[in-house]
Design a protein around this nucleic acid. Structure first.
Length: 281
DNA sequence: AACCTCAGCAACCGCGCGGTT
DNA sequence: CAACCGCGCGGTTGCTGAGGT
């Protein structure tokens, strides 16, 4: 099957290379409202000079709210190793077993860390890594690799856990939901998106989907479902701020001001405030 | 201090698959 | 049934920052 192939995007008018914060915001706000039913038409509708593929990639690998960033844990690395033994280079399938991790990320980790470590620990050459083809056959005979697999992985470069901690802390905040909704309303500005806004049910299904991605340990203990939903939205925005590099500035400012303001805390610059230039043509 | 090398990662490219017409 | 379309996947590239000389 699979006849023909649509030409990829028109390479003449699309922008390429690293994504700017402005583009990120546009993409995020659009997907937030309308979802991503059609990647091909999404860039046009969202006012992005990118091809759909690029948008999809950016969303899946970086902007998605459920992305878990930071170093891989030894357990994760062991899982990758184990799954790679049985699945081969099926990165998407491996990623499916690791919530919050993308196939691209796993692929990178494999090529940079695990393969190297495996090679050094087994004395294999680069081309002799746990062969996908051979390992596919091994699935039948040895579905479970030896348990000591993880041992060779545990000596990994987990020294910089700071990142993980920092990112995790991003999920321990409680931001006013109304502020988030204000942000969403801000991006509704027709001059920005040039599409009629209506409250698409997909937005809420999208929000609902967020719940699926949350790790149990990450979920707050609040019994109020609505409250937790608000928290999730807030977390997501905060997470986005961190990813866009806005949170760092906030932290620096907060560190500087910490001594002076304990009681009355002015709200930190919101995502939309940071992108004010977008809304002011 | 300047230059070089290398590792890590984000993004791109092209192919193949599944669904639709 | 064939052609088309859009998406997902895996491989590859190239940029950037860190570490070494």
């Amino acid at each position: 099957m699979g006849k023909g192939r649509a030409p990829c995007c028109e390479t003449t008018k699309v922008k390429r290379g690293p994504w700017s914060e402005e583009e990120d915001l546009k993409l995020v706000s659009f997907i937030h409202k309308y979802g991503h039913e059609n990647w091909r038409s999404l860039p046009t509708q969202a006012g992005l000079l990118r091809c759909g593929k690029s948008c999809r990639l950016r969303w899946l690998n970086y902007l998605r709210p459920d992305i878990k960033r930071g170093n891989f844990t030894p357990e994760e690395e062991a899982t990758i190793y184990r799954l790679h033994q049985s699945l081969g280079n099926k990165w998407s399938k491996i990623a499916a077993k690791l919530p919050g991790r993308t196939d691209n990320e796993i692929k990178n980790v494999w090529h940079t860390n695990l393969k190297k470590r495996l090679r050094s620990s087994t004395g294999l050459n680069a081309g002799e890594e746990a062969s996908p083809k051979g390992s596919l056959n091994e699935v039948e005979t040895s579905p479970e690799p030896s348990p000591n697999v993880s041992i060779s992985l545990v000596g990994s470069n987990n020294s910089s856990k700071e990142d993980d901690v920092q990112k995790d802390q991003a999920f321990e905040f409680t931001e006013d939901y109304s502020e988030c909704m204000g942000m969403l309303q801000e991006v509704d500005k027709p001059e920005l998106l040039e599409i009629p806004f209506h409250l698409d049910p997909e937005v809420w299904s999208f929000m609902d989907d967020l719940d699926q991605f949350q790790q149990p340990e990450n979920s707050l203990t609040s019994g109020d479902p609505q409250e937790s939903e608000e928290d999730e939205v807030g977390k997501w925005f905060n997470h986005l701020e961190i990813e866009l590099g806005l949170e760092e500035n906030d932290n620096q400012e907060q560190e500087q001001k910490q001594g002076t303001r304990d009681e009355e805390e002015p709200s930190p610059p919101s995502l939309m405030e940071s992108f004010e230039f977008l809304l002011d043509p």
